[in-house]
Design a binder for these strands. Structure first.
Lengths: 177, 177
DNA sequence: CTGTATCCTTCTCGATACTG
DNA sequence: CAGTATCGAGAAGGATACAG
């Protein structure tokens, strides 16, 4: 598998040649390891499970209760994937009411740290994001209103004329469909 | 889509209070800010775009080329979301071949750092994960094989006996205890 | 309690075609 | 070049029922 996407050094019109000083050039191909693992790790439920799991053991039902909105199915599936990836250890106690404990592996604990920092980022900046969203939406709405005003100022004459005396052109256009 | 949900600090019905010594108790409810932002930020394409974007400006097509497998639609959608969240700045140059530049905002840059550490974690541990997966799959296969062997060893006699004298089986079972 | 199996809805996403 | 709009296939995921 060569890095087939030969990024031709020739730049398309107008882009500056910055010589790509980025040393952070990871494998961007769709089927590469990093992309696959990232998909798993960045999965909604995986993220929450890893973030929740700390030092101690958790029972299945306990996790289910703690993660609001997760279905039994998705918790099972997610835990299995995490177990397969070596991030979570599953321990079955062969007792009469079945009991299963889940806990982070050492590898999982290293990921836990990273993911927690992502969660903390989210907590720290949720205000800014909410504000940005409001600003964006407000701007869009203002834009829409302006456009409508423009249209309302222009169309009425045309629409009125059209209503009274449909032009031959417009009729022809309608028939064309 | 107002997020108007007033989040009362009280827990929703039924959650146990197990003393929770975890100081990292964030709002786990499905509709809370953190969960929503986490979903956005942990999104496959958002992650890749943020990870790719560094100091400089990027053109639309440039991003499209760099992110293998992304469709035009998803790139547009993703960039719009990131713009709305105040993570990416979009600059339209009103020139004859339309030109649009994308770059991280200061807020986006802080997230970039966090996400890069996630990507780096993935790069650092992809070997371990691959190994864990192999081990898991091998174990599962061995388990399957064993089960099949068991079944093959048990069923023929049982089935044969059962076919000759169906009533015997229950008696034998009872005696076995 | 901790799953597994099945069905069925929902929603994501890619392909395609068209616009400024 | 940089979108927007539309549509359909397919996957993700929830609900439910049942098993060990």
């Amino acid at each position: 598998m060569e890095v087939g996407t030969s990024k031709s050094p020739s730049n398309p019109a107008g882009t500056v040649d910055h010589g790509d000083p980025d040393p952070f050039q990871w494998d961007t191909r769709e089927d590469c390891q990093v992309r696959q693992i990232l998909d798993r790790v960045a999965d909604k439920w995986s993220l929450l499970v890893i973030a929740l799991l700390d030092g101690r053991c958790w029972r299945f039902t306990e996790l289910r209760r703690e993660i609001d909105g997760i279905s039994q199915r998705m918790l099972t599936v997610t835990l299995r994937q995490l177990e397969r990836d070596g991030l979570v250890k599953r321990t079955v106690h062969p007792v009469v009411p079945p009991r299963v404990d889940y806990e982070l592996t050492p590898l999982g604990r290293t990921l836990h740290t990273t993911i927690r920092s992502l969660v903390m980022w989210t907590e720290d900046h949720q205000g800014e994001i909410a504000a940005a969203r409001e600003a964006y939406d407000a701007a869009r709405e203002a834009e829409m209103a302006e456009r409508e005003a423009e249209a309302a100022a222009r169309k009425p004459e045309a629409a009125a004329r059209e209503a009274e005396a449909p032009t031959r052109e417009s009729e022809a256009a309608r028939r064309a469909r």
